[in-house]
Design a binder for these strands. Structure first.
Lengths: 240, 240
DNA sequence: GAGTGGTCTAGACCACCTT
DNA sequence: AGGTGGTCTAGACCACTCC
């Protein structure tokens, strides 16, 4: 009993979804309101329950509705505006803007971990870590200073890479499959060396992203990405 | 033929999903690799194709795999680390940390839109806008200066609200259902008045979130949220 | 034509909540 | 007991890609 007419590119579950989406966006239902049950929507749209269920499940995953077993489906309290923030490989990001990317390698070395660093990587005190400092330029302008520590157990050949050709992010994702990452975003002043490398004043505010990346339960790398505030911003959007 | 044993809290589609997730996280399959087809997974796990399909569809929605009709399913190129960044009502955020929230109202007025502002709100030049400036305190410490413009057509009673009790975000979400939002996050120095209101130096870097919120296709409000860099950071995590 | 994923159905059993 | 959502099945038709 499939009734897919030839000129119907829009799947049924999307029809249900868009109908509900519009009614919510238009204020026909407001936060907390009870939506029609799956059985009612089955009647209204003349589709099977699995189709209605998929439409509702996806709206739930988006955070637009709340579902309570045994009770019903409600419009979510949209007291938060969440959206997917993407922290990307800086090379791809620049390339996508149609600009030229250059990387200048300032350090690539082995160093002894401080007690704090060793603890973070769960390595014995005094263990060796790889360290790199790279400045990324967009059309010749410095937009990011990448100061990175790498766990030698996860990427033993790190020091042998040519980072004028490929970024550390790109290389590390190849050798160590990403399983988890944690990051913070903050606004601070640059260190003296960062200011020098980026060609800015120590008084210029910077957007700093700190990130730890895990693979197979081990910390692969920690990085501090410092961006001159005047040359870089994060942006995003949210659609109900 | 449902074989749900009483002591199996984990749904079948999650078993399939977790199996694939682990194989990808462990490096058994790397970016670009071809995964087993749905038909093969049906055999392997002894479940129906709908169940396998759901497992794969959700992994695709998460960005972990790519699917090409007529070809197959592949491990996605994880050249980006994306995660859900949530910009929330500051009251909820503080309350969730178990801290005390206070709001100090500094301005609540009507003003004539500049040409630029009028254009942004799609209103005639010189139209009236509502304007509020509120400083939010967490346990008595200023963490956010909220400078907001509101479209009177969307929230005519804005000026009559008691913002020591409820936040503008909360009120506006009630009167104007959220349909879309756009935001940027950047690092800059505070204006003179912001520095004064937050009790910081004009040289202290700040994390600034600018956001426009739409409802029914109209811009309801624009806001500039200024946070002292030393007292506020955004954080998030990502799980493959 | 064979294999892939995209969608859909008409049932089903279950856990849960309300009454 | 009756309604709700959560999950699952064993089929089906379709569009697409590759050979």
């Amino acid at each position: 009993m499939v009734r897919k007419s030839p000129a119907s590119p829009e799947p049924q579950y999307l029809k249900v979804q868009n109908h509900l989406r519009e009614r919510i966006a238009s204020g026909h239902w407001v936060a907390g309101d009870l939506l029609p049950s799956e059985a009612e929507l089955v009647q209204t749209f003349g589709v099977s329950r699995m189709t209605v269920n998929r439409a509702l499940r996806e709206l739930h995953q988006e955070g637009l509705i709340e579902r309570v077993q045994g009770v019903g489906t409600f419009v979510a309290q949209l007291h938060r505006i969440s959206s997917t923030l993407t922290v990307r490989d800086v090379h791809d990001e620049i390339a996508e803007r149609g600009h030229r990317h250059e990387a200048v390698l300032h350090r690539l070395e082995t160093l002894k971990a401080t007690a704090e660093q060793a603890a973070e990587f769960e390595l014995p005190a005094g263990a060796e870590l790889f360290h790199s400092v790279i400045v990324h330029l967009e059309n010749g302008v410095a937009i990011q200073c990448e100061d990175r520590l790498v766990n030698p157990l996860c990427a033993p050949d790190y020091l042998a890479q040519d980072f004028s050709q490929s970024t550390p992010t790109h290389y590390l994702l190849q050798v160590a499959p990403l399983s988890e990452a944690r990051y913070t975003i903050e606004s601070t002043l640059p260190s003296e060396s960062e200011a020098k490398l980026l060609g800015i004043s120590r008084r210029d505010p910077c957007l700093v992203v700190k990130r730890s990346t895990l693979s197979r339960g081990r910390i692969v790398t920690t990085v501090r990405l410092t961006h001159p505030g005047s040359r870089y911003l994060l942006q995003g959007s949210f659609q109900a």
